[in-house]
Computed example of a mutant assay.
Amino acid sequence: MADAFLKPARFSDEEWQARVQLAACYRIFAHLGWEELIYNHISLRVPTEKPGECHFLINPFGLHYTEVTASNLVKVDADGNIIGNDDWPINPAGITFHGGIHAALPDAHCVMHVHTTPTMAVCCSEEGLSYTNFYAAQLWNQVAYHDFEGITVHPEERDRILASAGDKRVLLLRNHGPVVIGQSLAHAFNLMWLVQRACEIQLASSALGALRQISVPVLESCVRDSLNFNPKFGAGEDSFAALQRLIDRIDPGYRA
């Protein structure tokens, strides 16, 4: 499958591999219904040998997720400056926290943000995420919150977002939507999957009445036993690879 799409000479092997994986992720999001017209963002740090350099890939602004390909992803620095001669602009709202997170956290290799109905609904609720279901239990003590300040296009909000996130991998933007921070693309994807499913179940179960609580010791046990985030078990690489194979069967054009 990969042999049908040749790597352009301007990209290193490492950068091209990152581009293909990120383009696949955009198609996976579209397949799952996690896209939002031409908006929202998934960013991935570009592998580099230059110390101190922080470049990452992000979607071209104006394209639907099903139009994103490995070659049309835009490379930018932490301040949103486009690196190279890309034909597409980028969404300023994607730079405020993506650039700040990539620049401030060395192991923040992938950052994802969505506006799905269940996740936004939970972000709009006073309680936020309720640790009352199988999926939410695996996120115990890993979620932070940031108060809504409007559309994230103002650079001065960057430091406040970073302060709100602290050392947490999941940041729920109040009245807005979730941000997840992964040590790899697969790690971030599996975090987002947990957030999405936890919010779906929370909305469905809340409609039935009072939610049954889970004790703190059990919640702590769930976090320890959530092996899909353990590097010894691939940190989610296997599940992401399965979805990438699915996308390859449907539309491998993302590899172009």
Rank of each mutant, 00 (worst) to 15 (best):
A256F: 14
P155C: 07
L57G: 12
P118Q: 00
V122E: 02
H102I: 05
C222E: 12
C124S: 14
D225L: 15
K75E: 14
N59T: 04
P252H: 14
E237D: 15
N190D: 06
A241G: 09
A144D: 04
F189Q: 01
F29A: 14
A235H: 07
I42Y: 14
V111Q: 00
I181W: 06
E237G: 11
V46L: 08
K50G: 02
L185Q: 11
S221T: 11
Q183I: 06
V20K: 13
L171Y: 02
S43I: 03
E156Y: 05
K232Q: 15
H187P: 00
G166I: 02
A93W: 06
L32W: 15
Q142W: 01
P47R: 06
Y39W: 15
I28D: 12
A24D: 12
Q213S: 12
T117G: 01
E156H: 05
L208Y: 04
F11A: 04
H98Q: 06
T119M: 11
S215H: 08
A78W: 12
G209P: 03
M112R: 02
D86R: 10
L32F: 15
I28K: 05
G94E: 08
E127G: 05
L191E: 00
V111R: 05
P118N: 03
E149A: 04
P8F: 02
E15D: 10
A30Q: 12
L185N: 00
N59I: 07
F61Y: 15
E49A: 15
C124K: 10
P89Q: 06
L139W: 03
I38A: 11
V218M: 13
L171T: 05
R169I: 01
C25P: 00
G52Q: 05
A207S: 11
I42P: 13
T132W: 01
N141I: 00
Y131C: 05
Y65L: 01
E127Q: 08
L139G: 04
L246Y: 08
G100E: 08
F97Y: 14
I90N: 09
W140G: 07
P8E: 04
T152G: 00
N40K: 05
S125P: 07
Y39H: 14
K232D: 15
L57Q: 08
C110H: 09
R10M: 12
F189V: 03
Q142M: 10
P89W: 08
W16P: 01
Y26P: 13
A136S: 14
E15N: 09
E156V: 08
P106W: 01
Y145C: 06
H115I: 01
F56T: 04
R19E: 12
E36H: 08
D79R: 12
R249H: 14
N72D: 05
L37Y: 15
D159V: 04
F233D: 09
G236R: 03
A188P: 02
A18Y: 08
N133L: 07
H109P: 01
K50P: 00
I38N: 14
F5W: 11
G80D: 11
N190C: 09
L139H: 07
R19W: 10
